[in-house]
Design a protein around this nucleic acid. Structure first.
Lengths: 152, 152
DNA sequence: GCTTTTGATGCAACATTGTAGCATTAGATT
DNA sequence: AATCTAATGCTACAATGTTGCATCAAAAGC
């Protein structure tokens, strides 16, 4: 690729991988970019679809392992969300842990950037590594369409 | 069964089921009792083991359906926890939503009765049905054994 | 107490999500 | 280009949950 044409996103993805001592592969780059582009956490399946769209060959296992590695390296993080499948999102700078919203209508997970997922004071002896706060209900879009009737 | 011998727990389980218009079956009664007896949320598998122990025949599907019904009726509630499998707990009176702690060492889920899982103020349009707060880390038992060395 | 009704069960078969083992490919290095 | 080995992509499997349908049994009626 011509050096005057490298997209910043791709570049940072490649650098991100290299900085963690991993090999820069199509799959990893594409996964990171997909996560970076998305406003909400993506499921394994959604990421797979993105790879397909980008014409990047892969299989389930490779994708799982790429995601495992990203989580392991602290580049991405897993979210339990509402359904059975994990969802993944890029860890922005700092450890900025935010809450998530799971819409029970459209199934989507939305990041609530402004709502911190802070750990409260716990009984003695408990060591908290991370807090996960998930709100379930109807998101702004679905709520409007559903609660008020049709499209009030 | 002699009327002077009915255990209170069983009785309330039976009443609970009947009050919701369901049929009082061995499986449902045993599941409710298992959940009532347990101090922490139980997985499908753990509940199944209890039924086996009680000599109550069942299969995976029956148990799943019994649990589904309990959740549907608001008698029990599902917890996503840390691992893939759901866990279930009885809903005590009131909507007393508390946080849970997932120990990454022993895998156990602990109820933090004193820590409410309250929904913070959300952007307009979001309708929150319930909040799920899960803290991940090492529980009091595991933390002591692990952080301080052997068994300080 | 016996019959009827239909909710609940139990079985088989399947769907989804995630892992393990291993030969091959390809990124990084020399 | 040759080398080294991390990463890939198979296959096969494990864990978790669901669907369809025949059978059983809890609640209701007689």
């Amino acid at each position: 690729m011509p050096p005057h044409e490298h997209p910043a996103a791709t570049d940072s993805a490649r650098e991100l991988i290299a900085a963690h001592g991993g090999r820069v592969t199509r799959t990893r780059v594409a996964v990171i970019e997909a996560l970076q582009r998305s406003a909400h956490p993506l499921s394994h399946d959604e990421i797979g679809a993105t790879l397909d769209g980008a014409g990047i060959g892969h299989d389930r296992v490779t994708l799982y392992r790429a995601l495992d590695w990203l989580v392991e390296q602290g580049i991405a993080q897993r979210i339990a969300g509402g359904e059975r499948a994990w969802r993944f999102e890029i860890r922005r700078d700092g450890d900025h842990r935010h809450a998530h919203f799971h819409c029970e209508r459209c199934g989507q997970i939305v990041c609530l950037e402004d709502v911190p997922a802070a750990a409260p004071t716990l009984p003695a002896g408990f060591a908290v590594a991370r807090a996960e706060l998930v709100l379930h209900g109807a998101c702004a879009d679905c709520g409007r369409a559903g609660v008020e009737g049709k499209e009030g």
